[in-house]
């Protein structure tokens, strides 16, 4: 059993490193993206081996649902921009066969010159070697597991990771939500969104798949959110799953994005942060400290924050997939 586990670990790690290496050595960007999707899948298996099912769940939802689609759509956007520029925009210069325009022809990145090979390799080897040396010298520290365990009964939930995320280190989680929001504000500040490049997909398969899958994804998201208080799961994983369902809907109708009115949309994306902050300020006023809860209220407040955070994360991830700001936001 143990020998097999070690063998499994070794094969898995070799696969992860190999896939990452081939991904970064690709000249074809599409191949690099497909390898990156595979990399995410193998990483999820590694998280399972490191007894971190919560992280594996997040990796599954992100890697399979969000990042893969985001990267594929980005490549297609780049390709359609390039095609548009080549096909005779009046002011655009003709493509220069040696210049940077040629580099992006059909999403192709030529291998770099050999000049940087040795310095880069030496640098990476030194950094990696020093890291490994430092890591192998470390003691078997117990970390904070006993401390968290001793406080579980006053945390309001039964799952230690949720307790850390939404009670003991709630400030970090609050700022994490803020970062998702800031990323969206940044993407919105670049301009209005344009159409997602898409080709017709005739036949009953696509609409049929969506009709079946979107409701199942929504149910799964709600289940993962609910499970978070006592088992692996939680707001972010649930938000990512719901976000993936939203991305499916966007992909189904790329030319008719729902015209969300600006006010409610803004409220939706900032609801998670706003509610979290309100609860935190109430805690400060009531004497539990900023972002603190009374012990009896911990469970309902955590659930309330998680629900709002899930909705905001899902909405924000879909908006990040669409990238530009909707026309309704300027009204």
């Amino acid at each position: 059993m143990n020998g097999l586990l070690v063998l499994f670990d070794l094969v898995l790690l070799a696969g992860i490193v190999g896939v990452a290496w081939r991904c970064l050595a690709s000249t074809d960007l599409f191949r690099a993206v497909v390898l990156f999707i595979t990399f995410g899948l193998l990483l999820a298996l590694a998280w399972v081996r490191l007894e971190a099912p919560d992280i594996a769940l997040a990796e599954a939802a992100i890697g399979a649902g969000i990042t893969g689609a985001l990267l594929l759509v980005t490549l297609e956007r780049l390709r359609s921009i390039m095609a548009e520029r080549r096909s005779g925009r009046p002011h655009s210069p003709p493509p220069d066969p040696t210049g940077p325009h040629a580099l992006l022809r059909a999403l192709h990145d030529p291998l770099p010159e050999h000049r940087t090979f040795l310095p880069a390799l030496t640098f990476a080897l030194v950094v990696g070697g020093l890291l490994v040396t430092a890591l192998w010298h470390q003691p078997q520290s117990v970390g904070l597991e006993p401390v968290v365990d001793a406080h579980m009964d006053v945390s309001g939930v039964d799952h230690p990771i949720t307790a850390v995320l939404l009670n003991f280190r709630a400030y970090d989680t609050f700022l994490e939500l803020a970062i998702v929001l800031i990323a969206l504000l940044g993407a919105w500040s670049l301009g209005r969104h344009d159409l997602i490049p898409a080709r017709p997909a005739p036949g009953p398969i696509l609409p049929g798949t969506l009709r079946l899958l979107v409701p199942v994804a929504v149910v799964t998201g709600v289940y993962v959110l609910w499970a978070g208080s006592h088992a692996p799961g939680g707001a972010f994983q649930a938000g990512a799953i719901l976000g993936a369902a939203g991305i499916l809907l966007v992909l189904a109708r790329p030319r008719q994005l729902p015209m969300a009115p600006g006010g409610p949309l803004r409220l939706g994306i900032s609801a998670g942060v706003a509610l979290f902050l309100l609860v935190g300020l109430y805690g400060l006023a009531a004497g539990h400290g900023f972002l603190g809860y009374a012990e009896a209220w911990a469970y309902p407040l955590i659930i309330l924050i998680e629900v709002a955070a899930t909705l905001s994360i899902a909405l924000t991830l879909v908006a990040l997939f669409v990238a530009g700001r909707p026309a309704g936001d300027d009204a």
Binding site: V48, L57, A64, G68, A244, L248
Partner: peptide
């Protein structure tokens, strides 16, 4: 808990596929 992870993978694998089909026809 790994069953949940498997469920999410099975469910969301289709997203990349749809994104691909949408763009490559």
């Amino acid at each position: 808990a790994l069953v949940d992870v498997a469920l999410v993978f099975a469910l969301l694998a289709v997203v990349a596929a749809v994104a691909f089909v949408r763009q490559h026809g």
